[in-house]
Simulated scan of single mutants.
Amino acid sequence: MKTLISVDMEGISGIVHPTETHPDRHDYERGRALMTAEANAVVAGVLDADPAAEVRVADAHGPYRNLLPEQLDRRARLVRGKPRPLGMLAGLDEHTDAVLLIGYHVRAGGGPGVMAHTMNGEILDVRVAGRSLGEIGLNAAMAGHLGVPVVLLSGDDAACAELADLVPLAATVAVKEALGMAAAVMPHPEETRGRLRRAAAEAVARYEDVPPLVLTGPLDVEVDLAGPHAVDLATLVPGVSRARGARTVAFTAQDYAAAYRLILLLAQLATIKPG
């Protein structure tokens, strides 16, 4: 078996505030330790189910350099750094059997959810074939394009509900109950890690029962951007045009992989500020 564990940070147990997720903030090192410990619990669960499994762990938060390599389970291979193909799903290919999304958060406009956003805070919404998708849906559909199911997600209760709506047969572990953007009720992190280990083992054992999320092309895509400067930059990309209102750009992709790549590019363009 070959698995990819994509690990974000906002949905990790114990984390509720940007000071715990940003490299320039005082609580970041503590957040990194919590993130790494939770990733290790999931690696252990996958290997409980299949000791011979090939396990890749993609660091999928911010700079993609958050997990502590020297503390990660040595049986896993770490995918680290950016830019890179497939972004949060780097390491995924058509030979992968299952994807596990750990520490994920609800999309912008969803929730209430802890640190709800889509990709980088500069994107207000992404609609693919009329359906609003955040990082959970965008990544699940990219895995599905390659025929790979998302079998497990962990995060707050809103994030779990978001995946359940898209992939009803996938397993979820709510590691905290969101009270708002920066507040939640949660169990002790060690209790959460035990639950994650058991859930990961159960999820990968039944991966063949979970259908991939497949969005067939051609696909009409709309992206709402926070800044008008980002809209100006986006329309420099061939095939991208202004749509309704002052914040929205649109394009048509022949398949989901092309849509995903262009959405990643627009997210990066949106971080460029006027000179």
Score class of each variant (00 low, 15 high):
I123F: 05
L146G: 01
L67I: 12
P112A: 11
A116D: 07
R84E: 01
G134F: 14
G111Q: 13
L68R: 08
L133T: 10
N139A: 02
R127M: 14
P83Y: 13
L101M: 15
L89M: 12
G45W: 00
E38W: 04
H145C: 02
E94M: 05
A49E: 11
T118V: 09
G109W: 08
A143T: 04
G137T: 08
V43A: 10
A98S: 15
E94G: 14
E94D: 15
A33N: 08
R74A: 13
L86C: 01
A49S: 15
V43F: 11
E54M: 03
G121N: 14
I123H: 07
E54N: 00
A37R: 11
P63E: 14
P51D: 00
T118M: 03
A39P: 02
T36V: 05
L34M: 11
G144A: 07
V46I: 10
A98F: 03
I136W: 14
A60W: 07
L68H: 00
P112V: 08
G45C: 06
M115E: 09
E38S: 05
H117A: 04
D50F: 15
D125M: 11
V150L: 06
A108P: 00
M88V: 01
E38H: 05
G109S: 09
E54G: 06
G111E: 10
G121Q: 14
L138Y: 09
P112Q: 03
D59S: 15
L146H: 03
Q71W: 07
P69M: 11
G134K: 13
G87R: 07
A140M: 09
L34D: 08
E70Y: 06
G45V: 02
G130M: 09
V55P: 05
V106E: 08
L89S: 02
D50H: 15
G87Y: 13
A53S: 00
N66K: 09
Y64M: 15
L47G: 00
